[in-house]
Design a binder for these strands. Structure first.
Length: 369
DNA sequence: AAAGGTAGCAACCGCGAGCTC
DNA sequence: GGAGCTCGCGGTTGCTACCTT
């Protein structure tokens, strides 16, 4: 049995909305509300529009306090950080940007931000890459000789991210804390002189601290020899936070979602285990990803944190993004307590749905764009 | 000036989740 | 329990304005 159509498609108008239609819809909703039924709304108003179309028009254009265009650097940072952290969950990203709609952000990302990101990479990455990574010339030569490979790498990465996300929202590409251990070069991906706090691997390992603040750092000297695989207890810590977020987003109560995630001790329940299995599967898939892509990924995401300082002539438009601390300082949601009561993924309200002391700070430590 | 290409954005489409009966 | 329905989301399409040749 097929899906029932949401409206009589033969009798609904499509295409751009006229000012008259806008006025009718706005006046009705402001006076009576939606009545909890978008499908019935157009009949009540006398509009020859699909209910879904009315909803979209109201949501993206007519409702009060909508902002269009003119994205600030702060908003750019939030969008980029969240996109890299959680992918194309536009409604969640929109919830962090009052007055912005998911559609607006989606369009902005697809038409501008993504190109901005690619543009920065195109200009700087190969030169910076070879000097920053101190890699085997056999590896870097190929990348320098083949700009097409480099230019497509981010898009390939995004495809990989989406594919992995299909397998598991908690999978490898959604979990930055896993990356250094999984890198095909092991410790060689970063310059040899990286030590302690300015080592990006330490940043990412810090990202693997527990919800309760218990450090579960992995010794740095473990990294070069770590096999391609996952240390499950560290992974589980990250997963626990992700699971908590996901549960919150899915409407679980905070008490339900945080049950056994204290002290870094993660219950090996079926949900978590299935996520672990998904990550293991992702790891296997990962081994087919080229070394060049890995190098690019690290350069792209951690370029400012890996200890490499670009020459002045290497600074490009994307360097307009603030330094990590400045970014965090400028993000109010960063410091606010997570309100599980408002954990709606509905972009109508701008309430924070993210968990500032949980998942995302871990990620953004490494994603200073 | 005109044609073709590109960018930006509004709107549409189909699907999954969740609710009701 | 499951069929039917609505809602909300993310991907995609199509229109328009602007740019380039």
């Amino acid at each position: 049995m097929g899906r029932a159509p949401c409206c009589d498609k033969a009798n609904v108008k499509k295409g751009p909305w006229s000012p008259e239609e806008d006025a009718m819809l706005k006046a009705y909703i402001e006076k009576y509300g939606t009545g909890g039924n978008w499908i019935a709304l157009p009949q009540k108003i006398g509009l020859k529009r699909c209910g879904k179309s009315c909803r979209l028009r109201w949501l993206n254009y007519l409702r009060p306090n909508i902002k269009h265009g003119g994205f600030s650097e702060e908003e750019d940072n939030i969008i980029c950080s969240l996109y890299i952290s959680i992918g194309s969950r536009w409604s969640i990203i929109a919830a962090q940007l009052p007055g912005r709609t998911d559609n607006d952000i989606k369009n902005y990302w697809n038409t501008r931000l993504k190109k901005k990101l690619l543009g920065r990479r195109k200009e700087t990455q190969t030169r910076r890459l070879s000097s920053a990574l101190n890699l085997d010339p056999k590896v870097t030569n190929g990348m320098e000789d083949n700009p097409a490979l480099s230019n497509s790498a981010l898009e390939r990465l995004q495809l990989h991210m989406q594919l992995q996300s299909l397998q598991s929202p908690f999978s490898f590409y959604n979990n930055a804390a896993l990356w250094p251990k999984l890198h095909p070069f092991g410790g060689r991906i970063f310059p040899n002189n990286h030590v302690a706090n300015d080592d990006p691997t330490s940043l990412m390992q810090e990202g693997a601290t527990t919800q309760a603040g218990t450090s579960q750092k992995v010794a740095l000297d473990e990294l070069p020899t770590a096999p391609i695989g996952v240390q499950q207890d560290n992974l589980a810590s990250s997963l626990s936070k992700q699971a908590k977020l996901e549960n919150s987003l899915n409407g679980f109560s905070s008490s339900e979602s945080s049950i056994a995630f204290s002290n870094g001790s993660v219950p090996i329940d079926t949900t978590i285990m299935s996520q672990l299995n998904s990550v293991d599967k992702s790891n296997r898939n990962l081994q087919s990803v080229s070394a060049g892509l890995y190098a690019e990924l690290n350069e792209l995401l951690y370029g400012k944190n890996c200890g490499y300082v670009p020459n002045e002539d290497q600074i490009t438009e994307f360097d307009g993004f603030k330094e990590t601390e400045a970014v965090k300082d400028s993000m109010p949601w960063w410091a606010n307590d997570f309100d599980t009561k408002s954990s709606s993924s509905n972009s109508w309200d701008s309430a924070s749905v993210l968990q500032p002391d949980g998942l995302f700070p871990d990620y953004v430590l490494g994603y200073d764009l």
